[in-house]
Design a protein around this nucleic acid. Sequence first.
DNA 1: TCTTTTTTGTATCGACTCGATACCTTTTAA
DNA 2: TTAAAAGGTATCGAGTCGATACAAAAAAGA
Lengths: 188, 188
Amino acid sequence: MKANHIYDYVERLGELLRVDSRQAGTKHGLQPVQIEVLHYLAICNRYSDTPMAVTEYLGLTKGTVSQTLKVLEKKELLTKQLDDTDKRISHIKLSTKGKNLLNKVVPTTMFVTACEVLSDEKQSDIASSLKQLLTTLLHANDLKTFGVCSSCRYNSETEGGGYFCKLVEQPLSVDDVQLICREHESKV
Amino acid sequence: MKANHIYDYVERLGELLRVDSRQAGTKHGLQPVQIEVLHYLAICNRYSDTPMAVTEYLGLTKGTVSQTLKVLEKKELLTKQLDDTDKRISHIKLSTKGKNLLNKVVPTTMFVTACEVLSDEKQSDIASSLKQLLTTLLHANDLKTFGVCSSCRYNSETEGGGYFCKLVEQPLSVDDVQLICREHESKV
DNA sequence: TCTTTTTTGTATCGACTCGATACCTTTTAA
DNA sequence: TTAAAAGGTATCGAGTCGATACAAAAAAGA
């Protein structure tokens, strides 16, 4: 029964990252949660760039997310565009300014510094353990996985070397399948 | 260069823990940071139960911590006692109420549920990787380690099977050396 | 087709966090 | 003996976050 140990480590690592992220963000007037929103938007696909998707990913309420997005829009770090077919939905895109800023603060120097003293093999081991813990945590608690398309059961490979999503019934590019999706469901 | 991957996983795990911790705490009117403070006080030794030590551990400012402690004291989850020799310092102890509450919310059910589906061996692997990452992160960035006395270079074993800290020049019990200390320095 | 329900999103309010600054007391250094 | 450093509190403003209320569009039902 190592649940306590694992919890302790994740809590501590999370604290350190949060403190570091706060410090990194302060230079640019950003809060930790704002960095997380920008980070999400940088790695999600075009079906998952909506306020509701951000809400599900971060586990906050839609009101909270709406406020945060409003602030980030005012800072010109992102733009909103109404969906072509569904007028309720808006799509959020990082602006160039937003992308540049994000690259400056993620990952924080703390993590880069630590990884420099670890061998590539060790880093892979750690990444693998983290991935396994995360996956287990999500599945055991019936949480949305937000995985990349290439690991999704709705995704299939076409003859031409491209990809196709059977859920939204749209073709996907090589770049597309490396982004995370709110509809993601792991292959069985 | 896996720094980005590792950062992503830790960020996501931290988010999940924070959301879960918020939910667990809400039932008892506690904020995530308040749970972290209680958690720290439950595992630190008698030389590290001061407001300044909490400040260092959580990476916040002393003003912020002072406020949080004031709230927790009003909730009767902890008590403050002035130090015998140094009148500037106060020692914070969890009350019985505080200990009981903490046991209800840490670790959260999310982690317990996840660990139930993992073998003991897998859990050990993951815990080991997390520990290695944490240790590397702390050392590579010259951060305070807050380790347990048993892994500290100031700690020595006495003939009678007890322990002795060469820094504070005081004997330590078997229970003592399993607590974390703000003066901790890893053995070389 | 018309009505009801659901989904997506915004607005506002209050409790709380957090850093910054100022301030006090006690201890330590000069 | 005086100055500096350390531990701690008080207060303020910007911002998070949940809760509630609300609006508009889409989906479901009759």
